[in-house]
Write a protein that binds this DNA or RNA. Structure first.
Lengths: 221, 221
DNA sequence: CCAGTAACCTACTCTGAGTAAGTTACCACC
DNA sequence: GGTGGTAACTTACTCAGAGTAGGTTACTGG
């Protein structure tokens, strides 16, 4: 098997096992078995258990990033960027629950003084949101933009975790909560105030329109 | 040494070691040594390494909860509740960096199907915020209140982590970012709209007033 | 047919979680 | 002032699983 294919396979299996058992309970032996190879191979490719987890997380993050970015690219208005980005984010989590379960384990590898590669990923994540805020509110000082960016990322993550225990809340609902929340929070900082209430997706029909949040929020898909 | 004292001591040392080394690298042996006892004692008291971490986290959370609640109790207006709560939260993180480092490790113990006790802690955390939102916006449906609560908690956590790499951002700054953000997000849902811009602390002088966020946000303490 | 090398394996070591089976220290009670 | 009882503690293990040393197969170009 080619090196690249083997690597992909190993990451697939690692993702599976880490998601099923959690980092601690996952054994390198088991991951190796599922790949049909022996343990030292994993060490050859990834150096350590941490290395394997990190690589798997990095890949998932990249996919998530890509999915979100692609969705945002299709948007027309600023509101639409926010809405599509949020929706894509939550839909990705639904579609890739294994990746999601793994992303939750990031603190594991981040907590020692390991932060090197994490730093880069973090910057990538922020890189998606910060420019939007900066564009919408050009007068806002840099630190405030950064802080708001972190606030939004943290909020998304926590809301995604919360959804695990609330399966009745659709990705659509979650995206609406986030969009509504952040949009209202931001609008006082907008340079050229945008009309209308919370941003509505202007994609024709299909996705429904997130009207005012005080209305009943549950619309089962 | 009395059982209660010993337990306290063990939790203190565990907190120290977990914070210094991270969960993985922390060894039960070392924690025991620092307590001047042998390993089986730790197992007698806490059952397992997980148990010890969980107990330590629970204690820290309780302290954080208590500090925040106490601060909120001293508030007069709804805005003031939000402001004081946020400020107390970030100040606690500054003052108890060890607890904080440990709280970050929670996912470790939460990721398997361990969520039982975590659930309770989570509810406690939410219990501080949800009632405020519900009081401010009585028309808001329950699920939306819950979602907003999670959004705010997630935002706070992430902002606290972000501050680790940005020591120039004071607790005061962070509280102001959060207060400004959430207040603006909420005001469109307020039953009886509150006047004024983002909430300002009406504590006489000492703490400074978080005026408009577009102003320079850094005020070194 | 024979290097040379890439992919892979067997068979270990070693650290650290968790435990079994004791030992000491102290107290109540007669 | 010994004696049963028990709480607090220890030594000395087992055992799983991360990580490694050193060899074996299998395919390539010459």
């Amino acid at each position: 098997m080619s090196r690249a294919d083997r690597e992909r396979q190993m990451l697939d299996m690692a993702e599976e096992v880490f998601a099923e058992r959690g980092y601690r309970a996952a054994s390198m032996e088991e991951i190796a078995e599922r790949c049909g190879v022996s343990k030292p191979m994993l060490y050859e490719y990834f150096g350590s258990k941490d290395g394997l987890l990190t690589a798997a997380i990095d890949r998932s993050k990249a996919e998530l990033y890509e999915a979100t970015r692609a969705a945002m690219d299709r948007a027309t208005t600023p509101q639409d960027v926010v809405w599509r980005g949020m929706l894509a984010y939550f839909e990705f989590m639904d579609a890739h629950s294994r990746s999601f379960a793994m992303l939750l384990q990031e603190p594991l590898v981040a907590t020692p003084a390991t932060g090197e590669a994490i730093e880069q990923t973090r910057r990538q994540q922020s890189g998606l949101i910060a420019p939007i805020i900066a564009a919408l509110a050009p007068e806002m000082p840099r630190p405030a933009v950064e802080a708001y960016t972190e606030i939004i990322i943290g909020a998304c993550e926590r809301l995604a975790v919360w959804r695990l225990r609330h399966p009745e809340v659709t990705a659509h609902d979650a995206a609406r909560y986030m969009t509504d929340f952040t949009w209202n929070a931001m609008r006082h900082h907008l340079q050229a105030p945008v009309s209308g209430p919370a941003p509505a997706p202007d994609v024709p029909g299909s996705e429904g329109s997130p009207d005012d949040l005080t209305g009943p929020p549950h619309r089962r898909s």
